[in-house]
């Protein structure tokens, strides 16, 4: 079910990453207000775990003793390159492994969707020790291969190509920060291995129409040269799709909605320049056709200087 999770998990991941960079223009992921300086490359390795026992079948919250706890292990590589100080290119490669603690269903594993993001900061204004900046992030996520999408919730993903655009505004005053962002995710149709399926009606085709989705996020917390610590609230809303019927299996084009809250921290070591550690924790507090997941993730990052000169801003 709730593989549902996956896009979510992925977003999770995205929150992470690293990067470092004195003060304001720190790190970077698809959803944060941090940038990698020009000619610097941040490489990060992360490991995470997500699990749920309860899930929402439509709006009906239940357990399923035929699956027990459904968990996902995630290992992820991320790269962020500073093309310019205000223009970054981010790539991530996630490997997922699913497992059900009870019942007979086999777990699945494999490299899921490759993510490519261009992050651009077109605007920045300072006043005293306050700073306001705006970001635009364009993304494309592409399944690395034709993994099995028809065995949710054990499948590792939904198999859809996703084009996204995100607008993000960030305000910083001293060491206090607050940012708001919204994204629109255009999702391509997917092809399943069967020639017919039932959503809320019968469809005689292998192609499945995937509804688009929207993501909204607010985060706020502390940010200085070495430490970033933020609380996050995140909402993913599928714009269409249908509910899982009572006692039916989940399906790729379900209306998967979730609201999560979490904490995220990044710490850049003082002694070893360029080395950072990351961690986050999220809980799904409300959802529809998704698992009520608890997830956490941890990792390290290192920043390499690839240019002859680095223009620190």
């Amino acid at each position: 079910m709730l593989k549902t999770l996956l896009p979510k998990v992925l977003l999770n991941l995205l929150f992470l990453c690293m990067g470092l960079k004195p003060i304001i223009s720190l790190a970077q992921t698809e959803t944060d207000a941090l940038m990698m300086p020009q000619n610097k490359l941040c490489i990060a390795g992360l490991a995470g775990y997500s699990s749920w026992t309860n899930y929402w079948e439509g709006t009906f919250k239940r357990e399923n003793a035929n699956m027990g706890a459904v968990s996902t292990n995630i290992t992820m590589l991320m790269f962020n390159y500073g093309i310019k100080n205000n223009l970054n290119f981010i790539v991530n490669v996630p490997y997922l492994q699913t497992k059900a603690s009870k019942g007979t269903l086999a777990g699945m594993q494999g490299v899921q969707d490759l993510g490519f993001f261009i992050k651009y900061k077109p605007f920045e204004a300072t006043s005293g020790n306050s700073l306001l900046s705006l970001y635009v992030v364009g993304g494309l996520s592409v399944p690395s291969h034709q993994y099995n999408i028809d065995l949710l919730p054990m499948s590792i993903g939904l198999g859809s190509r996703v084009a996204s655009v995100r607008f993000l505004g960030d305000f910083q005053s001293g060491k206090f920060t607050a940012s708001v962002s919204g994204a629109y995710l255009h999702r391509s149709n997917v092809t399943i291995d069967r020639t017919a399926y039932f959503t809320d009606h019968q469809i005689n085709s292998s192609e499945v129409q995937m509804p688009d989705a929207g993501n909204f996020q607010v985060r706020s917390g502390y940010r200085d040269k070495h430490l970033i610590a933020e609380a996050i609230a995140d909402n993913m809303t599928t714009l269409g799709g249908f509910d899982i019927r009572k006692n039916d299996m989940p399906f790729v084009s379900n209306r998967m909605n979730s609201t999560r809250v979490g904490l995220e921290a990044k710490y850049y070591l003082k002694k070893i320049s360029g080395l950072g550690i990351h961690g986050n924790y999220f809980r799904t507090v409300q959802g529809r056709n998704v698992g009520k997941a608890t997830s956490f993730m941890a990792g390290v990052s290192y920043i390499l200087n690839t240019g002859s000169t680095s223009k620190m801003d």
């Binding site: 084009a163 996204s164 020639t195 085709s205 192609e207």
Partner: peptide, 17 residues
């Protein structure tokens, strides 16, 4: 973004067999 969209095809109508 619009280019990306067209790259992954925005027409979602499904033709049934």
């Amino acid at each position: 973004f619009a280019c990306l969209c067209s790259l992954i095809s925005c027409n979602k109508e499904i033709e049934e067999d």
